[in-house]
Each structure stands twice: as structure tokens, then as C-alpha cells.
Amino acid sequence: MKRLARWRLISLFAMLALVLSGCGKPYLSALKPAGEVADTQFDLMKLSTYVMVGVILVVVVIFVLVFLRFRRKDDKIPKQVEGSHRLEIIWTTIPILLLLILAVPTVASTFKLADVDQMDKKNTKALIVNVRSHLYWWDFEYPGQKIVTSQELVVPTNEKVYFNLKSMDVKHSFWIPAVGGKIDTNTDNANKFWLEFDDKRSNEAGNLFYGKCAELCGPSHALMDFKVKAMSRDKFDAWVTAMQNVKAPQKATTASAQKGQEIFNQSCIGCHAVTPANKMPETARVAPNLTNFGDRSRVAGILDHNKEELKNWIKNPETYKPGNMMTGKYNVEKLTDEDLNNLADYLMSLKVQ
């Protein structure tokens, strides 16, 4: 009975795993590629799977044939074979061929995906994004456009986007599952690679992808998300122009937001920037740039983008992201409910489009 109960439990977990494997969104899955790099990686995954399944099938067929044909029928001892040069050559050659089938496209793809010569040219026209990872948020700088954003990466489709990645505290890892990656962000050196976002498949995903930190980096590692907005080149150029037109801190337009701006200037401006042309050195970026905060799709990368969730985050960020660097940076207990409401009004009004 105990053994039967154990098998029932195993069967239940197997069925649950099968059901859960169908959950999720297309923009979160590496099995639904949406770019050239993701296509290449997916093709390598399929190739290795086909090879492994083929090997398993051949071994199973040989096992069944040997089991049926050479099963013992009487007490006679069969002829003992010490070795066979032909068989030894066969089972040595086949693994070598399989390794070549796997190694050649893998090595070729590795060199292709590692080709970042274009971003190192003196007057390159390639779009370059400097990615800086922090506990637990992301910073995106467009040096050619003189723009800095945080938590939401904006990219054009159907062209290579080059990334220059570095960490400002501990090791993290930059990964956009549906588009490609992943690659570590280190503290002592910068890694480089490129991605391409397919226009058609980006449209199918709603032009929104999720990025993750894929390296265990602390208690809020699982919450270190960022969003990627993929759009046509024309829309991307319009977004760049709108960001570049924000030359000074945006002024509040309502009485509540004006009070919130005063609070922001007294307690938040020391860490957060509200202009896209962030001229501070990268080592001084201790908090996300909030220039286009009102245009974002998430608060702190994980919460719904609305006023109530924003107030909850400001009031107690440790509840949502344990170990974050914002906790304890200001005397939040001194802020009244009215102060929080005014500050939230100001931050939600920071839009550039």
C-alpha cells in the first residue's frame, strides 16, 4: 500500500509539472524565439535534442533486439566473443561523428554571436547601449544619443543592437529569454554582445519583452526584472527625440504634483535623476533615472504601474525587494499620507511622450 501511495504521489507531481509547463507568456519563453540570436540558440537546442533522442532510440532498439534474440533458451553456454575490431571501430566512429555534428555549428555560432567589431569602430553608426546592473535594478545608457534610462530598455527592431555590460556592485547576468543571451555583468571588466529584435514577432508579443537577472545576486535576485520595448526605427527615433527634448527637470503641472516635486527635491534628488541626459559618472548612479517614470509599465520592475502601488513602494520598499539599496536612504516615516500622495502624483506625471 505504501508503494502504491508513493506512485500515486509521483504521478500527481508529474501531471502537475506537465500542466505548469504550459503556463507563461510568449515574451518570457526561450522556446518562442523573437530574434536572430534567439533563433540561432533555439536551432542549436533542437539539434542537440534530435541527436540525444536519436541515440536513445538506437540504444533502445538494440537493447530490445538483443534481449529477444539472444535470451537464454537452454543450458548451453553460447560462444564467447572476446572482441570485434569492426564493432569497436563502429562504436568509436559514431560518437566522434555525433560530436562533430554538435561542435561545428556550435563553434561557428559562438564566433558569429561574439562578433562585436562594429561597435568598436571609430565612427560607427551602430546603436550601442551601455548596461549597468545594480542591486536590484538596471541602468541603460545610450552614449550616441546622450540618453540614460532605467528599468525599461527601448530598442529598434530589425537591426543589431550592441550591448556593453558591467556591474556596479556584485556579479549579475543580463538575459532576455525570448530574444537571446545570457551574458554576465562583471565588476572588473565589461562584456559585449549583440541582439536583434524581429519586428513581426515583436508585434505578436505586443512589442514588450521581459528581461531577467540570471545570476544569483542576493535576496531579491528573482525580482531583478526589466522591461524591453521593441519598436520600429521610426518610432524609436521619435522616442529618442522626445527624450532629448527634456533639457531640464520636468515641472509639475498640478498643485498636488508641485508639492510632490518640492518633496522630491528635498529627499530624492540626491540619488535619482529626472533628466535623460545624465551627466553624472557611472559610478555615481546610485538610483534609477526617473525621467520617463510615468511612461513605464511597472513600478520597481515588479509592481503594477499605478499610484497606489507606487505609494506602497515608497513607503516600504523592503517589503517588496529585500536588501534593496533604497531602504533606509530617507526618513520615510516623516512623510504623511498627503506627502506620499503628492509625491506619487509628481512621479506619475513624469512623461516624455
Rank of each mutant, 00 (worst) to 15 (best):
R3P: 00
W7D: 00
R8L: 12
L12M: 10
L12V: 11
A14C: 10
M15A: 12
L18M: 06
L18C: 06
L20R: 03
L31A: 07
E36T: 15
E36Y: 13
V37S: 14
V55R: 06
L57Y: 04
I62T: 07
R71V: 08
R72E: 14
I77Y: 05
K79Q: 04
E88A: 13
I89H: 08
I89E: 09
W91M: 09
P95F: 08
A108I: 13
V129Q: 06
R132V: 05
S133T: 15
Y136W: 11
D139K: 05
E141D: 06
Q145G: 09
V148P: 00
P177N: 11
G180V: 13
T185E: 02
N186G: 00
D188H: 02
N191Q: 12
N191R: 07
F193V: 01
W194M: 00
W194I: 01
F209P: 02
G211T: 09
C213L: 01
E215I: 00
S232A: 13
K235M: 07
W239M: 04
V246M: 07
V246P: 02
P249E: 09
K251L: 08
A252S: 00
N265I: 09
N265A: 11
I269G: 04
V274F: 04
M280P: 00
P281A: 10
I302M: 07
W313Q: 07
P322S: 13
A344T: 11
